[in-house]
């Protein structure tokens, strides 16, 4: 009998990937929408775990705090506020849309796999000099190398915020006129 030749990192990767995929499927297919939201959170956690495996701790922490601390919270809020009848699902049936979806996803997976086989650069051997993932390095690259992109991104977000505020204000005014 042989103990498997997988390294610890690979075993952990397979476990996390399996949990992530199963959680993603449950998130889409759960009958009770709250379970869907919970498993969405589990899926985000799994992705954070993959980032940690890739040595990107900083990214993983923001993944957790933004996606679970904000996105899942928002989804749960919406679920709790909206009346329950809206979320009830119809029974699962095989419609042309479902078949088309399955075909499209199979084609996507197939083409990615084909690319993976074609390119030697995708091999799993680690590079000689590991990239410096420290927070200081990330901060320098964000502020110095990509400074202008950061400013533009901030402007875009600001514009989005102003747009949302304006929409909220308009609705209030309409209610007042009624």
């Amino acid at each position: 009998m042989q103990i498997s030749y997988l390294s610890t990192a690979e075993i952990v990767f397979i476990l996390i990937a399996a949990v992530t995929l199963i959680a993603a499927i449950i998130a889409l297919e759960a009958k009770e929408i709250v379970y869907g939201a919970v498993s969405l959170g589990v899926m985000f956690l799994g992705i954070a775990g993959l980032y940690i495996l890739l040595d990107a701790n900083y990214l993983a922490m923001f993944q957790i705090s933004v996606y679970i601390g904000a996105v899942v919270v928002l989804i749960l809020f919406t679920i709790m506020i909206v009346p329950r009848e809206i979320w009830l699902r119809r029974a699962f049936r095989i419609t042309p849309e479902v078949i088309a979806g399955i075909l499209a996803s199979l084609m996507l997976i197939g083409s990615i796999g084909f690319l993976y086989l074609l390119t030697p650069a995708w091999s799993l051997t680690p590079s000689e000099a590991p990239f410096d993932w420290s927070v200081r390095r990330i901060a320098q690259s964000i502020v110095i190398e990509y400074g202008i992109a950061l400013q533009i991104l901030a402007l875009v977000l600001f514009a989005g915020l102003m747009g949302a505020l304006t929409l909220a204000k308009v609705e209030e005014k309409e209610e007042e006129t009624k």
Partner: peptide, 23 residues
Amino acid sequence: DVGLLFTFAILAMFPVIALLAGW
């Protein structure tokens, strides 16, 4: 090396669990 962020990320999960407990 991102210890502070880690603690905040974990803190961000508590309210979700509190709401789920209520639900």
